[in-house]
Amino acid sequence: MQEKAIPIALLKRDIIGIAKSGTGKSCAFLLPILEDLLKRENKNNSILRALILVPTRELAKQITQAIDDYSKYLDIKRVAVFGGISNKEQVRKLSNGVDIVVATTGRLLEHIKNNTINLSSVEKVVIDELDTMLDMGFLEEIEQILPYIGKNRQISMFSATINSNIKKLAKEFLKDPVVIEVTNQRDHVEKIEHQIVLVDEDNKSELLSYLIGSKNISQVLVFVNRKLEADDLVKNLNLDGLKSSCIHGDIRQSSRALALRKFKEKELRVLVCTDIAARGIDIENLPCVVNFSLPETINDFTHRVGRTARAGNDGVAITLLSVKDYKLMNEIEKELMLQIPRVELVDFPTKEKKPRTKTREKKSIKDKKIEAKQRDSKDKTKTKKPNKTKFRKTTKRG
């Protein structure tokens, strides 16, 4: 992504970048922004030049940290704008002047309405994880924000997939965009070691603890679909002696940040999260991801397993599969061109009724020849004899 996007961005062309998480998108859009800011002569008074919109607080913090890393020896001022915390510090930084704002849409709209931010000077706009933002229902908010930005702007949209809403948004706000697509999502998924463990739904929690302990997994990110499911699972894991915590939408931002920090520093062994809360989470050398519950979409599956095996490292993705998800798992494998073997553990035999599957018996060549002869003989007996036309005899009279 960096190789293809950076030269286009430096030409100030609008971009639609299609690539999965972990392909270096952050660097692809941050370096051109920093390069442009570096050329500015008047650095005494920072003027807002770049706006980066993201779906979650975690991703906002991650990108802000990336800005700090890349601009370590530059005089760049940035601020992260998101909800869940007091906005007083954000207002103070904005009033003192900043070069880059990284924001979630909801809190940014609050600042716009309160006149604590002016977007008219923004020249570069980046919308990251756009497909996720649309899935979360932020299309209307994005459409409200973009008109506040001056006409002399360059917009880059990055998404793992492209759909009709993304095309509609691009048609409305982008000028002759360059479309950059980097690898298919299945390319990365194939490099991950996948495992499927068959288990009854009621035994999933116990099996997860057994797998973490027996495989001696030092660090594991576990995905669930519901907030209550995450809370209950953390309780069970801690009772089993596995230090765990969770992050989801109902948990305060400070608690989410603390849990993520402890997990990265390996003070926690297990971090349980929902899909939305996990967007933007980047953990270096994460060895294992577990699908405790199968996600509802193939795109979410690729986002989940993509948390491991990043930057060329090894990683394992384990899916705990119960009968109710057999059909969806088959669809995921078909779409991603995967064939993952199923394993059933001796200590956790499955009792749920499995769907019937048609299996063809293997027949020998001799049996196949006999069947072919029988079909031929039946076909001959079925052939109809031609009808004989009866002619009437006539005699000529002279």
Results as ranks from 00 to 15, higher is better:
E3G: 00
I8R: 03
I8D: 05
L10M: 10
K12P: 10
K12L: 13
I15Q: 03
I16Y: 09
I16D: 03
G17D: 06
K20D: 14
G22M: 08
G22W: 07
C27S: 10
C27Q: 05
F29H: 06
L30I: 06
D36W: 11
R40M: 07
E41C: 09
S46M: 01
I47R: 09
L51N: 05
A66P: 06
Y70M: 10
Y70S: 04
F82G: 02
G83Y: 10
I85L: 15
K93S: 13
S95N: 15
G97Y: 08
V98P: 13
V102M: 03
A103R: 02
N114T: 07
V122D: 03
E123K: 03
E123M: 01
I127H: 00
D128W: 04
E129I: 09
E129S: 03
L130W: 08
M136N: 01
K151L: 13
K151G: 03
S159L: 14
T161D: 10
N165T: 00
K168S: 13
K168M: 08
F173A: 02
V179C: 01
I180K: 06
V182S: 10
V197L: 11
V197C: 01
L198V: 07
E201C: 09
E201L: 12
S214K: 14
L221I: 07
L228H: 13
V234P: 04
V234R: 08
N236F: 12
N238Q: 06
L239A: 11
D240G: 06
D240V: 05
G241I: 04
K243E: 05
S245G: 10
H248R: 11
S254I: 09
A259L: 07
F263L: 01
K264T: 04
K266R: 13
E267A: 01
L268P: 04
R269G: 00
C273G: 12
T274I: 01
I281H: 02
E284D: 13
E284L: 02
E284H: 06
L286K: 03
F292A: 03
P295L: 02
E296T: 14
E296W: 04
D300F: 09
D300G: 07
F301R: 05
N313I: 03
N313S: 15
G315C: 15
L320Y: 08
L320S: 02
V323R: 00
N330Y: 00
E331N: 12
M337I: 10
Q339T: 14
V343W: 11
L345R: 04
T350K: 09
K353V: 15
P355I: 05
S364P: 07
S364L: 07
K366W: 03
K369S: 03
I370Q: 12
Q374A: 07
Q374I: 10
R375D: 13
D376P: 00
S377W: 09
D379W: 00
N387E: 05
N387P: 03
K390Q: 14
F391N: 02
T394M: 15
R397Y: 11
R397M: 05
G398N: 15
